[in-house]
Design a protein around this nucleic acid. Sequence first.
DNA 1: ATTTTATTGAGGTGCGCACCTCAATGCAAG
DNA 2: CTTGCATTGAGGTGCGCACCTCAATAAAAT
Lengths: 345, 345
Amino acid sequence: MRPTAKDLAEAAGVSLATVDRVLNDRPNVSKKAFRKVNDAIERIGFVRNPAAVALARNKTYRFRFVLPVSGDQYLSELIGRVTEARDALRADSTEVEAVQIPMADPHHVAKYLSLIDHETLDGVAVMAPESPQVRDALVRLVERDVRVVQFLSGQERLERADYVGIDNFAAGATAGKIAGRFIGNQPGKIMVVAETMMALDSIQRRLGFDSIINAQFPRLQCLPSLETYADEKRAELIINRTLQHNPDTLAVYVLSSEARAPLTAVWNAQGSRQLTVVAHERTPFSERALMDERIDALIAQDPGHAVRSALRIMRARADHRELLASQERIRIEILLKENLQFQGP
Amino acid sequence: MRPTAKDLAEAAGVSLATVDRVLNDRPNVSKKAFRKVNDAIERIGFVRNPAAVALARNKTYRFRFVLPVSGDQYLSELIGRVTEARDALRADSTEVEAVQIPMADPHHVAKYLSLIDHETLDGVAVMAPESPQVRDALVRLVERDVRVVQFLSGQERLERADYVGIDNFAAGATAGKIAGRFIGNQPGKIMVVAETMMALDSIQRRLGFDSIINAQFPRLQCLPSLETYADEKRAELIINRTLQHNPDTLAVYVLSSEARAPLTAVWNAQGSRQLTVVAHERTPFSERALMDERIDALIAQDPGHAVRSALRIMRARADHRELLASQERIRIEILLKENLQFQGP
DNA sequence: ATTTTATTGAGGTGCGCACCTCAATGCAAG
DNA sequence: CTTGCATTGAGGTGCGCACCTCAATAAAAT
């Protein structure tokens, strides 16, 4: 039989009340009693029954994903996964929600975060662009005893918050390696397209991409980043111009998660040219293009995994529990037509 | 407040005892009462509190991984992950163990499985080569009310069992695509090495690999599969001979999880030749070789994910629960040096 | 009409723990 | 010695459910 708290009290030679005080960090415990209980825990291998703990605490956990407002398909996917998790966790007294707020003004974001406290929420997963205001707001959130996860975004990593997402330098490097090796042996240029190069993750991906191309594929030359500013017209214009001026373009790397506008422009303009195309994230659009062989490879981070990981982390932190680090590493996935494991509309 | 069983009884206009009968499939419930309770469940959105259920049932779950005896590094990794899961699940009244048995004789395996029943175990994850005897034994296990997971092995899929693992045809196809595109433009041959081609998964990988090479890379020719029979000497011999007879070999594809012997032989024999190397599974050996650029790409299935998925499935089946299908799909991962996320000693 | 059988309700117990109160003990400072 | 404070123990309650017993009632069979 598994030892219970009662067994533990017996083994430690103290009362149940003292065991309770030690287990739940309550005051008024002598060092000696503390030692006795902890020794006994080791000795008899006591582990709290999480079901009993959950039942007795009868606490409802509340977690929120704070996401940008956007028409991004990857974001829709993400929200879908949050909804999925919400339904799955409803049974476990865990409320999960996703809210979308404009991220353009850091002060606004910071103000939003400043209204959150321990009474309303146990944890927040924030996907917001890097800015000192937001960073400060997150630090203060942690100080108010709200668990914070920096979620899939190019924030500078905080000490006291967790991070869920991929290493964007490595992701860029992976894209570079795939592009370089897929292109073949001829020399030429690579067009790099981004929504904006202001974001930290864009910069890191670009740096990773360049580092590999420069080191391992000297015959290839990366063009300066084209920034679409999420403007279709602009995207078409600058991409057409670039392709005209660089007839020896062999590949396109779109490093933003939203690739529809740039790639549509590329396909319209490429003519008979054979271009190797590498983009980021699996979306309905990119999935279809991969199946049609208009995209050669996707570098992706699984949104479902990311959402579940963030929730596991916030839950573990709220319970002062350790967690299995290996499970929480978000993989940099390489998706080809062959390993897409397509499953229906 | 979340509705409890008491609220449910009230809403349904029946007693707690009847609610209990319906919720736990006990006998002596009229159709009318059954309907009343289920209607009320929908109406008030009743969901059982899993913590309370677990506590009241006070049941210990027992799951076992039945694995082959072997010196395979991937297998060691797998066992490590089982141990990890065992420690993590100890708190949740779940006993997890891994046993290794010889798989050479199907009758022996079948006999081993026939000794398992519902009293000793709630679920078994079996990694065994395809054979009618084993398949029958698994079917009978299911009939004895033991949850069965066909685990990472080339079994014919059973109706009433779950499968955890990748689609090996797709894995072979992925390897083929990577090899084909990594090689470049010159024509030549690809050497394919396996431990044995008797196993279903080897056959499927080979078929997938060939299908891609033949369809998309007509300039490349796949050589007949070399079988090492897990014999180092033999591996060296046949690989040397093949490389000598085929000076235009451009790539090597090792489709078994154990690649040490074949690849060591290849590296000793390749001389100044540039060979593209694709293998399966992340192991200490393959990881190092990938970092050293002696392997170009690995096709892998995450053993930690596989173990956790098998456990989640067995647990859900034991509780007659649904599970999130999307989480249980094992991905065909493509690992390059760049996205390996090395974190070793 | 009587026996049998199916269905229902009332009520109790226990799972392992968190959280609370109150009294009792010890020890140190005054 | 007395007061004050820190520490400890005893004991109770409740979390939401599973599982059990026993009696009461309704419906079906004889």
